[in-house]
Write a protein that binds this DNA or RNA. Sequence first.
DNA 1: TGTTAGCACTCGTTAATCAAGAGTGCTAAT
DNA 2: ATTAGCACTCTTGATTAACGAGTGCTAACA
Lengths: 344, 344
Amino acid sequence: MLTNRQLQILQVIVDDFVASAQPVGSRQISKKDWITFSPATIRNEMSDLEELGFIEKTHTSSGRVPSEKGYRFYVDHLLQPASMSEREIGLFQSIFQNHLAEKEQVIRESANILSDLTTYTTILLGPNVGKHRVKRFQIVPLTDQTAVAIIVTDTGHVENRTITLPQGFNPSDIEKVINILNDRLAGVSLLELQRKLELETFNVLRQHIKTADSFIQSLRTIASFENEGKLYFGGKTNMFNQPEFHDLNKVRALMEMMERESQVISLFHPEDTGIHIRIGSENNHLAVDDLSVITATYSIGKDQEGSIAIIGPTRMDYQRAVTLLDVMRSGLSRTLSKKVNDGL
Amino acid sequence: MLTNRQLQILQVIVDDFVASAQPVGSRQISKKDWITFSPATIRNEMSDLEELGFIEKTHTSSGRVPSEKGYRFYVDHLLQPASMSEREIGLFQSIFQNHLAEKEQVIRESANILSDLTTYTTILLGPNVGKHRVKRFQIVPLTDQTAVAIIVTDTGHVENRTITLPQGFNPSDIEKVINILNDRLAGVSLLELQRKLELETFNVLRQHIKTADSFIQSLRTIASFENEGKLYFGGKTNMFNQPEFHDLNKVRALMEMMERESQVISLFHPEDTGIHIRIGSENNHLAVDDLSVITATYSIGKDQEGSIAIIGPTRMDYQRAVTLLDVMRSGLSRTLSKKVNDGL
DNA sequence: TGTTAGCACTCGTTAATCAAGAGTGCTAAT
DNA sequence: ATTAGCACTCTTGATTAACGAGTGCTAACA
């Protein structure tokens, strides 16, 4: 167990290093006026802290820098909630007060504000559409051979796909198909849709429509949409401000990672609904090896869920980031849920 | 007017500098076996070319580098079409041969392949939806107070928006509205839609529906969608490979520019349908001050149009880029138009 | 026994110096 | 008109030296 004095020193090291990005030396620590012991004592303690793995030197005679273990300890034991400034509260309100009509707009704006306030990069994962339920099928013919198939969900989400119609498919056939689909599939979640189509609905279609088979293939395509929610980025270029990203290769690795949707999604951990901090290699992801990712989930209504992530250097202001993320999370949940209840 | 010898020298300077990113010296030029005169002669000619503004020195005793004027002259007078390798042709075919069903997928894939082949960044601007014509209106009620309004165009494009319904709006009202809208607006282009609604349709609605006014406001929102086509990027991080982008600030400026949709769109020049090259400051855009942008338009069917841009350093392989862009442009036009004619 | 002052030592950073190499411009010879 | 020769310029990379920040250790101190 760490002594009280060691805790104090570790805290100063993390705080100072977070603020300055410079290794922290014993003299610098001793200057804090609530630190009552001398640099020499601090050096001894730091030596111990280093042995315990909480801090490291960048070279033999440098000041100390928190290790991953040090950050981990810090966020687990030393982190206290921060307060927000007037200005910050105002900015949050600006998105959570009514006037933004569209849900998507609120989410987009949230990502921007959160990245502005933290100076880190933020990613919002929109609600997964898998749980949405089919409200209505619609097929709108375009030409003799083509039509647009549309699925509207109970949440107001719309999926659409252009499909080809079989030779000789006439309006009454379309009518029939629409009726069958709406009869059979209303209320089915998008996740179940594919299975339900294959196991039940296609058979019914075959019974009623001569040319069902070639049509079924088209329908398959519309049931196979992206399952994951949409990604919204804020402050993609914020990382350029961080001194640790003055290295071209790091910037590059990060940018490339952000271009790959699947990799970005793997940063989220939706199993866990609380606020979750992954430090450096805890992310199991080379490109974010010296980055920390803080995630949280927000909810819309009772069964839609999305996630928020703040990505910053491991030398990140965890206190501030966690506070802002938490406010954003609850604000978003409240605002978007309200929109749903108001029926928007 | 430039002498033949000067033309030869300018060509070598551009070609060599494009290939190596190093200033080109007189000795290096004289080594080309089709160059028959000595380094000293070349030095004299270079001195003249410099005076004329086609090339510049990076410092007093360095080799020469093409100036913007030099590049301009090069692309205007010295550029010849290049041939493509087997591999390149194959890659193009892989996207233009059938199997990619969705137009959007073809476009997305095109951006990627073009950026892979050029090693530059490419941007595809999807067709502007303004010319699409309304095929069908649809309103799907979600709750008592909300519904999804959907517009399907003759091209299969779908716009949708969640709207609020007035108190006491019943299914027969919705039916009536749908009929009125479809009667009045079928065939109207999306560009005209807003005006048409305001000037004619709203009045008709008011005559038939008691609570039309509060409903009209909702309809306004759906008619006000993005007018510009969607942007698809390829190889956003390719610029990291270019030696001129080893400078953090340049990378940063470029990345930030690409995050701003309006700035990206301003790089296109859709007035002109040919292939268009803007070199460095010709772009009138600080962030791309030492970049060149090559644009072209492709067409889908008879009145949809989109644009393609290749963005690279001014020291860019114009010959190759122009060739690839041209092939891509015609291939895309052909492929997407075919999809339209096939009714897809 | 825990704390602290003092000091030698290490290492990174910066600036200064130097040599090598590439390229030019000019002059004089062809 | 062309070219060989040469002095001069400027960049690049390596080497060196001075400086400063910080440590670890020892010995003195409370």
